[in-house]
């Protein structure tokens, strides 16, 4: 069983992960270790494979792992169904959240919460307790109660959808949250609200991986580690200063540096 230098089991340990869609390989060997209490940022140009990594970790069917491993608290993730991963505490805030016409947010999240509780051997939550939980969590992202009464994401603006992803995260309380460009499409105020919400959800026993294109999110949420994903490989990792350097110099700088080294 893998452990980190402190002798703790990492929340997530990805080793030499190769992922294909159809017969095209998109990730060519990714390594990533995320410990409890950490925030990681993954940056990289369009099409470099960031969403592929995130989606693969939550079990999206069309992504095939051809080589490598991914452990969550020491357990191999790759053989688990998407719902089994979710019930163990893995969560993805989607880059493109899906609309569920006719499915009320209340009903959807109640079913999800109950599924997670069932996994832990707990009873279904009463409607009243769930009401309270939902209302309380909605405050964290300042989500309008009116939106909670509507069908999930149906007719939501881009920003409202992103906020709803964080609301779902707040309600489901995952151990490992992957946030795929949650900051894209948010206006300045919404970005601050969502970032504040994410900060409130940070705890020593959970971890987050933020996929982002912009330093502006990282101004609010300081990452412990920043990784650059380029053409399906993590080509550089560093501290928060790496994001600033990227913002200044662009990806060409990294590409050249990588090419020079190989």
């Amino acid at each position: 069983m893998p452990t980190n230098e402190n002798g703790q089991q990492p929340l997530l340990e990805v080793r030499d992960l190769h992922v294909s869609v159809g017969d095209q390989e998109i990730l060519h060997g990714v390594d990533l270790t995320v410990n409890a209490g950490e925030v990681h940022a993954i940056m990289g140009p369009n099409g470099s494979g960031k969403s592929t990594l995130a989606n693969c970790l939550v079990g999206k069917p069309e992504y095939t792992v051809t080589k490598g491993q991914a452990f969550y608290l020491g357990e191999s993730l790759l053989g688990l169904e998407p719902e089994e991963r979710a019930r163990r505490g893995v969560f993805l805030a989607f880059q493109y959240p899906v609309e569920l016409p006719g499915v009320r947010t209340w009903q959807f999240l109640k079913a999800a919460v109950d599924a997670l509780r069932q996994q832990r051997g707990e009873e279904e939550m009463s409607a009243r307790d769930f009401d309270r939980l939902l209302r309380e969590r909605a405050k964290i992202v300042q989500m309008d109660q009116e939106l909670l009464r509507r069908s999930v994401n149906e007719g939501f603006s881009g920003g409202e959808k992103k906020r709803n992803e964080i609301l779902q995260m707040a309600v489901l309380d995952p151990k490992l949250a992957l946030l795929d460009e949650t900051d894209s499409g948010l206006d300045i105020d919404a970005l601050r609200i969502v970032a504040d919400g994410i900060n409130k959800l940070r705890r020593p026993d959970n971890a987050m991986v933020l996929v982002t294109h912009y330093q502006r999110l990282l101004n609010y949420i300081t990452p412990d580690h920043v990784h650059v994903l380029l053409d399906g490989r993590i080509v550089r990792s560093g501290g928060p200063e790496l994001a600033l350097e990227l913002e200044e110099k662009g990806y060409e700088w990294i590409r050249e540096a990588v090419d020079a080294a190989t």
């Binding site: 719902e83 959807f108 999800a112 599924a115």
Partner: peptide, 13 residues
Amino acid sequence: AETLFYMRSRGLD
């Protein structure tokens, strides 16, 4: 299929 996956990713079978 995308919709089903979204729901499953929230823990629903």
